[in-house]
Design a protein around this nucleic acid. Sequence first.
DNA 1: GAATTGCGGACAACTCTTGT
DNA 2: ACAAGAGTTGTCCGCAATTC
Length: 326
Amino acid sequence: MSSKRKSDKKVQRAAMLLKLSKKGSAMTVNQAMEFAGYEDDELGNQATKKAIYRARDSMETPEKKPQTSRALVAVPANEPPPHGMQAPVARRIVHAVAPTAPSKMRLTCRQAYGQRQHDAEQKKLRQEIFLEACNMWKEECDKKEEAVARGEKYRPKSAEDICIELNQQHKDVLDKRISPRTVREHVKDGRVGGLQRRGPKGRIPEDLYRALCDAIKSYAILSQQEATKVSNLRPGLIKKLNAVVKSKEGPDLRPGRKLFERIERDVADEIDLGKPNRIEQRRAKWSTYSNINQWFTAFKDFLVQHGFAEHVPEEEWAERGELVFG
DNA sequence: GAATTGCGGACAACTCTTGT
DNA sequence: ACAAGAGTTGTCCGCAATTC
């Protein structure tokens, strides 16, 4: 077989893989080339890639990519959900292995709370890193502009490189990397404030929304300190929030659990609505009168026993106090 | 060849509808 | 009244094509 025919076969194989991968999972052209038998040094060849694209396009039109449900990972009970559940790479792998919708598996309360807290922390961290990337790239763009104005040449660091650098720096703590695509868009549009949440804007003004978050946070923290309302804290809060929504004039808000869930997501890293504050509960227990009294009695005995102080008879306490140091 | 951009799917947050 | 699913809409971001 001639080398040309061999190479044609590889192009056809890669094109077929690329086409088939569109049906259930996304495969990059490089991956298709690897599977088709191309060597590592051939993977960067643009001409070959173009030939593969042409071959793919000349094949019959692939079926429309089916809608896939979110990747759901089964988590053993009583264990927090694993980190990295939402990594984009993982999503694609799940699609490739199971294109049909997997049956949903409910998380336990503890897993769900753990997941919410983890998500909120990740959101904050990602926001900070994203802002840093935007600032860095903007600085590079400004430098380039200034250099051009002076008639000089300046090769700016690319958004891609900046993101690679930051993602590498934070790879141990960041589940989902930041994308240079988004950094470029934000800087070009002059957007400040970092990543915005997806979806339409809510109807509640920002200051009111923050006030609601603070109110729920305070209420939850106080309840947790009592450590007595574990079982009904969440539903109780939903009912109270609904009552507030219904009683106030302003934006047309409908009562329901959705608003509460939104607030819960936003404050999840600061409180945990599913558990009593055991540490606070213990602290409260320690700080009772009898405990403090016991500590001081023991401390008094220690001081007298080791000769740091002298015990005063009870009838002289009013005049000299309970202990005399010296 | 590296960097950027257009396209489109995925996703998230919302509203609306329907069933209980 | 409430829960759950469907539908809608705006944003994010991966891929491939295009530009520099």
